[in-house]
């Protein structure tokens, strides 16, 4: 099937001003928060992007939607339904075919009733009906429309946010960490709604820091490290660590509760840090001389997946 979303070599940069080394004048500096990311989603598929908090994952969502903050810009290519997704096109499509499902209740205007927010200021009966049935689909009654966000419970807020995506017919849904603070059971229940939406034909990009949660629902997983995708794997590959390709992914696997909770030593570098070679070198037990001297390490196809590592089989 034609992919609904193709991301090719996407990088997102932040402009930062800082003191230069010699002069006191401010210097402009470009920091890469997302580096050379490629990704594909076909309708009905859930692709998870897994990475530690603060690794620039949200910017990925914002760049697809064309709502990057004013001090940042992107390079690379995003295609939607086969065509380049320009900012202008994104503006037309967001809220119609492309939807964001954000983290929580802070994404609702605190001074506006839920119903009014979902209707986006429209008052015609058709909009009202669709908003009504979207809420109903997730077990939220008419009374919820009259509530202010602060009156919603955590679970209700999450369902309202999902409902906001089905007021239209979604073709691409970007769920940015949609279940923080929920216990495992409620989180799984919320995620089952995503499976449902995928089965109805939407492509879903699921952004999370929780590998376990991602594996419970995704078809494919892209692992993010310091702003770079370092591995792309099928969900099944996570059955055995030997099937995985990158040392970091394997370390994540071992860090999962059912695999012994072995934490990864060391700190993840910030995406914008200037460095040469492999970002994981500082934590990698398989690191060799060339890992540090090589320039940008390319993402290569490897054993049915993709990996950004010079010695992927070193740790098997």
């Amino acid at each position: 099937m034609e992919p609904i979303l193709q991301i090719e070599h996407l990088s997102v940069y932040f402009t930062q001003y800082e003191h230069g080394p010699r002069s006191s004048a401010f210097q402009k500096r470009q920091l890469a928060a997302v580096k050379d990311l490629s990704l594909e989603i076909t309708p009905g598929q859930i692709v998870a992007v897994v990475g530690a908090s603060g690794s620039g994952k949200s910017l990925l969502a914002h760049s697809i939607l064309g709502i990057l903050p004013y001090n940042s810009h992107m390079e690379g290519k995003i295609r939607y339904n086969g065509e380049t997704l320009t900012e202008k096109k994104a503006r037309k499509l967001r809220g119609k075919e492309i939807f964001l499902i954000p983290q929580g209740v802070t994404y609702l205007d605190p001074l506006m009733k839920v119903g009014a927010q979902l209707r986006k200021g429209k008052k015609d009966p058709e909009t009202k009906r669709r908003c009504r049935s979207a809420l109903e689909r997730y077990g939220l009654g008419a009374d919820v429309e009259e509530l202010y966000p602060f009156e919603l419970s955590g679970g209700m807020a999450r369902r309202v946010l999902i409902a906001s995506a089905v007021t239209e017919k979604p073709r691409l849904i970007i769920a940015d960490e949609p279940t923080p603070g929920l216990d495992a059971r409620s989180a799984k229940r919320i995620l089952s709604h995503f499976r449902e939406l995928a089965d109805e034909g939407a492509g879903i990009l699921f952004i999370t820091h929780d590998l376990e949660l991602a594996l419970s629902i995704a078809d494919e997983v892209a692992v993010f490290y310091a702003g770079e995708t370092i591995e792309k794997a099928k969900a099944e590959d996570f059955g055995k660590p030997e099937n995985l390709r990158h040392p970091y992914t394997r370390a994540l696997w071992y860090a999962m509760p059912e695999h012994g909770f072995r934490a990864v030593g060391g700190l993840q570098p910030y995406a914008g840090d200037d460095r040469k070679g492999c970002p994981y070198a500082g934590q990698c037990t398989a690191c060799r001389e060339d890992c540090r001297t090589e320039g940008q390490i390319p993402l290569v196809e490897y054993r049915g997946g993709e990996v950004r590592c010079l010695h992927p089989d070193e740790m098997r």
């Binding site: 914002h62 939607l65 709502i67 503006r91 037309k92 499509l93 967001r94 809220g95 119609k96 939807f99 964001l100 954000p102 983290q103 802070t106 994404y107 609702l108 205007d109 605190p110 986006k120 906001s164």
Partner: peptide, 10 residues
């Protein structure tokens, strides 16, 4: 956040 979301919803 809520303005970001409003933007994201078109």
């Amino acid at each position: 956040d809520y303005v970001l979301f409003a933007r994201a919803r078109g």
